Amino acid sequence: MINSFYTAAAGTINLQNGIDVTANNVANLATTGYKASTATFSDLLYTNIQYGNQQLKSGHGTRLQKTDTLFEQGAPKQTGRALDYCLMQPDAFFAVQTKDGVQYTRNGNFHISLEHDKGYLVDSAGNHVLDANGHPISVASENESPTVGVFSFSNTGGLERAGNTCFKATTLSGNASVVRNPEVKNGFLEDSSVDNADQMVSMIEYQRAFQFNSKIVQISDDIMQTVNSLR
C-alpha cells in the first residue's frame, strides 16, 4: 500500500506541472508572438514481479520529462502601424539587446525611445532592436519603417525561454545566423500560436488524471489508517 501511495503522489505532483504549462499557454492566448509550450511525460522505473510463470511490471508513477516550445506560425493581424513587424517564417526571430545579452523574439511590436536627443527602435520592455549587423537601429519618426535584423538557428528546439516572449541561444540551438531576404510584413503583428480548443482539451485531460491520482492517494491513506488502528 505504501507503493500505491507514493506512486499516486508522484503522478499528482507531475500532473500539476502539466496543468501549469497549459495554464501558462491559456494566459498568453492574446500575447503577440507567443509560442505555446507542450509537456511530455515519461514513466518512472518499473519493478519486475514474478507471479507464477509470468513476470509482471509494477510502475512507480510518472514524471515531467521535458517541456518543448512549438514554433508554429501565428496568424498575421493588421495594425497599420509603421513600427509593427510580423515575421512570416516560423523559424525566424528579431534580435534585441537586453541587460543579459542578446535575446531573440517573435514580437514585432516596436516603439521609439529617445536617448540623448536621438530616437532608437525598442521593444515593449525598452530593449534596443538590432539590425543585421547587431547594432541598435535609429529612427526619427513613428511613420518610418526601418529595416530590422532577422535571424534564424539551425535548431530552434534548442532555444531557451528567457521571459517576455524572448529566447536565449544555447549550445543546442547553435549561434544565430542572419536571414537574407526575410519575409516580413510591415504594419502587421503575429498573433499567439496558442490554440484555445487544444489547451482546453489538455486541461481537461490533466485535471481528470490529477483527480484520479488524488483519489488513489486518499484511498491508500485511508487503508493505512485502518491497518494501523488494528495493531
Rank of each mutant, 00 (worst) to 15 (best):
K35N: 06
K57W: 06
L230P: 00
T79V: 04
I2D: 09
S145E: 00
D123F: 07
T105N: 00
L83N: 02
Y85C: 01
V96D: 00
T165G: 06
L114T: 08
V227K: 11
L130M: 07
R63L: 07
A125T: 04
I19F: 13
A197R: 09
Q54D: 04
D100S: 11
V217P: 03
V184I: 15
Q50L: 15
L70Q: 01
S229R: 13
D43S: 15
T32Q: 10
K35L: 11
A30I: 04
Y206W: 12
Y51G: 05
I2Q: 09
G174D: 12
L172Y: 10
Q16D: 02
V129R: 05
V194K: 11
G61A: 14
R81H: 02
N213L: 07
G101Q: 00
N17T: 10
K35C: 07
N109G: 00
S138F: 10
A209W: 08
I219D: 03
V184F: 12
T156F: 09
L15A: 04
G101A: 03
A92C: 03
Q73F: 01
Q78T: 02
F188E: 06
A176D: 00
G119M: 08
T31Y: 07
K57T: 14
G59P: 03
E144A: 13
M88E: 06
M203C: 07
R180M: 14
G119F: 14
A209Y: 05
S192P: 07
N181R: 13
N213K: 08
N196H: 14
H111Y: 12
S42P: 01
G157D: 13
H135T: 12
L121Y: 09
L45F: 15
F212M: 14
F167V: 09
T38E: 05
T69M: 10
T105A: 00
I137Y: 06
L114E: 02
G80E: 03
T171I: 15
Q103Y: 01
S220H: 05
N14Q: 12
A95N: 00
N107P: 01
D91T: 00
G187K: 14
I13L: 14
I216W: 08
A82F: 04
Q103I: 02
L230C: 01
S229H: 13
E190K: 08
Q97L: 15
A8Q: 02
N14S: 12
R180W: 09
P182S: 12
G149N: 11
T47L: 08
D191Q: 14
N3R: 15
